[in-house]
């Protein structure tokens, strides 16, 4: 699972390649900015959704690809923020930005609690434990119906004013997701991030060199939870509705799958993964109600044939061509 570290090659030999990479990035950015002028509002909504889920997938990737701990609770952290935003606006009468901040803070707090419980384990145990913890949130949202509305969920009315315009909202989400991307990229390339990669590759060696492994994993988990919360808070505005399915296991699975499809440990792959999964979902849902089955099959196929993901695989091929 822990595939190649996404070290950008910047030696002289690859001057041309890095130039190519720059041109490519600029082109992608141009397309992203141009989208509102070409797409209909429905398709723009899908593009917005892709960006939101790319943030969620990147938050998973920070933990799975760089700290070497694959979580299955990020859907629950994401959905916690969604619930808090809608509940805050509906019941507490908070202004939207304040509710969103509270939502992100709540998600970060949940992540910190999860992190405290999960830092001591790794590998499959980590996955199992985070899965169980995520399901607790789901159980609470399902059963505590006075607050969460139970299975009916909560309906909000958050897309008012300028946010009601799909193009404006898209632009806003684009800016936030790019900020999140650069923040996370900075984070994983910082000395702290390098230490995380060291922990991923050999925990005992890092510990014997005097690094506080537990603290690093704890912080990485909490920070990744913060970004999952950011995605969840935006999702509240995007979707105007939240139900237990927002915190369900399927949501965590989808976030992880997007990160894996794109390529674990690449960050930028999360955008690709989110795009592939969401476009596939739109496509499949147009013909059949069996999206969950298709998702399961995609999961199985990816695990069997391309566990390093699309970006991971193309990077491998790219570097082999040298």
């Amino acid at each position: 699972m822990t595939s190649l570290a996404p070290t950008v090659v910047t030696t002289n030999k690859s001057g041309l390649r890095s130039a190519l990479a720059w041109v490519g990035s600029a082109a992608i950015l141009f397309v992203l900015i141009a989208l509102p002028f070409v797409l209909k509002s429905y398709h723009l909504g899908i593009a917005t959704q892709i960006l939101i889920f790319a943030i969620l997938a990147m938050s998973v990737d920070v933990l799975a690809g760089f700290a070497g701990r694959t979580p299955l609770c990020h859907g629950a952290i994401f959905g916690t923020a969604t619930y808090f935003v809608i509940y805050g606006v509906n019941t507490w009468g908070l202004p939207l930005p304040v509710a969103m901040m509270i939502g992100v803070a709540a998600a970060t707090a949940v992540a910190a609690v999860f992190a405290l419980l999960a830092v001591r384990v790794s590998g499959v145990y980590f996955l199992l434990l985070t899965l169980a913890l995520g399901l607790v949130i789901w159980g609470i949202c399902l059963r505590w119906s006075q607050v969460t509305g139970g299975e009916n969920g909560l309906r909000g009315d958050l897309r008012t004013g300028a946010l009601a315009d799909p193009a404006t909202f898209y632009a806003l989400v684009l800016v936030i997701s790019l900020c999140a991307f650069f923040a996370m990229r900075r984070f994983v390339n910082s000395p702290f991030g390098l230490t995380l990669r060291g922990i991923r590759d050999s925990e005992s060696r890092m510990a014997s060199m005097g690094y506080n492994v537990t603290l690093h994993v704890f912080l990485a988990f909490t920070i990744s939870g913060f970004f999952a919360g950011v995605a969840g808070a935006i999702y509240a505005v995007f979707n105007n509705f939240v139900s237990p399915s927002a915190v369900a296991l399927a949501q965590s699975v989808q976030g992880l799958l997007m990160a894996i499809v794109g390529g674990i440990g690449t960050l930028v792959g999360s955008f690709v993964g989110a795009a592939v999964i969401i476009i596939l979902e739109q496509f499949v849902s147009a013909y059949t109600e069996r999206w969950q089955m298709v998702l399961g099959i995609v999961f199985i196929l990816i695990m069997l044939f391309a566990p390093e993901g699309i970006v991971g695989k193309s990077r491998t091929l790219w570097h082999r061509r040298k």
Binding site: T70, A250, Q292
Partner: peptide
């Protein structure tokens, strides 16, 4: 993760 796909 494969068994997760199977579960779905």
């Amino acid at each position: 993760l494969l068994t997760l796909g199977v579960a779905l």
